[in-house]
Design a protein around this nucleic acid. Structure first.
Length: 219
DNA sequence: GCGACAG
DNA sequence: ATCTTGTCGC
């Protein structure tokens, strides 16, 4: 679980700062996925009329895949999973029980259709081994989907305010911490690694355009 | 009661 | 996570 357990090689940053793409097709890390779930606080109109105290929400899970051998980290795949009347609560330290089922479906949909962009590795918006019980969302998802995962935390539990705002990288599944750090460093354009950032941006955007607030209208 | 609490 | 406007800076 904490060792590298995958067949591919990392693109090697050259001394000039450019990425050297090796010729061995299929052995190079190319497709890196990112997952996230966004929520809308808006009440579902039907639920609001029926139950006064009900606070059903809308949610949107997203899965994006980036080609990390391109300088721009091109997004080559995206898919969403919209949730209506989502009432699974968020309980601190139990994030996986809320989000793993959603994200797992997005991954299985790709796998079931033999999608050529199926990610070789997945970055997860949430921690891996860095968790009170040592098994965060990134671990759950990695095991369930049997895919190498890296956990990305943006708030450390019980941390103090630092002068800068770091991110927290932790092992999810089938990747060592050293490798996880190397990979994250090569796919960051901004503070948050690009696969996570794109998953975040796109899920929020998709939710806004397709959420309960629009009466469920699409397009 | 107070502080902490991934997203 | 979400509720929220403008604003300062590269």
């Amino acid at each position: 679980m904490e060792r590298d357990d995958f067949p591919w090689k990392l693109p090697i940053p050259s001394s000039s700062g450019n990425v050297v793409v090796e010729e061995e097709e299929g052995t190079l890390l190319k497709y890196v996925g990112g997952v996230d779930v966004s929520y809308s606080k808006e009440l579902d109109s039907a639920a609001a009329a029926a139950a006064a105290a009900a606070t059903a929400a809308c949610g949107c899970g997203s899965l994006v895949v980036l080609d990390v051998t391109t300088p721009t980290l091109q997004v080559v795949y995206q898919d969403f999973f919209l949730l209506t009347n989502f009432d699974v609560p968020y309980i601190p330290s139990f994030l996986a029980f809320r989000e793993a089922p959603i994200l797992l479906q997005l991954l299985q949909k790709m796998k079931n259709t033999d999608n050529p962009f199926y990610p070789q590795l997945l970055l997860v918006d949430g921690n891996g081994l860095l968790h009170p019980r040592g098994f965060g969302l990134a671990c759950h998802l990695g095991v369930l989907a049997n895919i190498p995962t890296i956990g990305i935390g943006k708030n450390a539990m019980r941390s103090t305010k630092g002068s800068c705002k770091p991110i927290y990288i932790s092992v999810g599944h089938r990747v060592s911490l050293n490798t996880a750090i190397k990979i994250v460093k090569m796919i960051c354009k901004y503070r948050v690694p690009e696969p996570i950032r794109q998953a975040d941006i796109r899920s929020r955007d998709h939710l806004q355009k397709n959420s309960c607030g629009n009466g469920g209208t699409l397009q």
